[in-house]
Design a protein around this nucleic acid. Sequence first.
DNA 1: TCGTTGTGTGGAAAAAAGTGGGAAAAATTG
DNA 2: CAATTTTTCCCACTTTTTTCCACACAACGA
Lengths: 151, 151
Amino acid sequence: MFRGVNTINLDAKGRMAMPARYREQLLAHCSGHLVATIDTEARCLLVYPVQEWEEIQRKIEALPSLNPVARRLQRLLIGHATDLELDGSGRVLLPQALRSYAGLDKHVALIGQGKKLELWSEQTWTEQREKWLVEADAGEELPEELRSLSL
Amino acid sequence: MFRGVNTINLDAKGRMAMPARYREQLLAHCSGHLVATIDTEARCLLVYPVQEWEEIQRKIEALPSLNPVARRLQRLLIGHATDLELDGSGRVLLPQALRSYAGLDKHVALIGQGKKLELWSEQTWTEQREKWLVEADAGEELPEELRSLSL
DNA sequence: TCGTTGTGTGGAAAAAAGTGGGAAAAATTG
DNA sequence: CAATTTTTCCCACTTTTTTCCACACAACGA
């Protein structure tokens, strides 16, 4: 289970040191084999342990490919999915194409989201976060599932 | 069950000494393993024993992630949830990111709230408290659930 | 009053993690 | 096929984090 924020510096080669607290878990659960793809809603990357990803990929592939929306999802998500491996120092190399999609330069933020991780440019993340916090006050409609949620 | 206010001083490293009366209880109930995240309504932190938090995290993760309001909650709450461990002296280290969100410098107030604790900058806490007391005089309407409550 | 115990506080030492770079291997190109 | 570039792997240094210990102080009881 992933949670929490980590700010990380990419090195000159585009490598990211996975937070130490995740490493043991990742080696045990998927031998350090991850898959990264793009988020189509926001300019960030989604990172999954390989098993989790493959389950999702099966679901996406099962969508009716004559439906334009489904086809678009397939092309964007599966088309950008890239295998990543933890190296001996617990780092992964992020391909140039994904880094430029999410605008990742040096300072990035890795956000735990349960079964997956999200990877943002640190600046984009903080800006987005401020927007969300302001919106939360605006008191929009809450979905039914949220009414009863008590924190 | 937590209740009552404690004012505590953070040390230079951002560590907070948990009130002694909670320590035994926390070690017994969750081995001193806590999770802190942000409150999206106010600039304060929420601190849960790990089991309590994981139950909440499961509920939040189960929300439909295509719904923007739900997605925002997931990112804000799970995205900021950070594991804390009581050290040998009964202290927890609060990460910089959470401290700056809640504006915690040296003087903080820890508020017992049943299953969870709230952590405020002491100054923010006292100011907020005054506002609430004034609002209470303004005599707003009570929601149905409150009419029958007798203190 | 003095010793004892429990708590708050600071800091040093040890361990772990971050970081950079170079050499070997692989791939690409002419 | 050789030359060059790119990628991968691994080592070593630096910095950060964690753990552990010691001291000060207050509360309490003898």
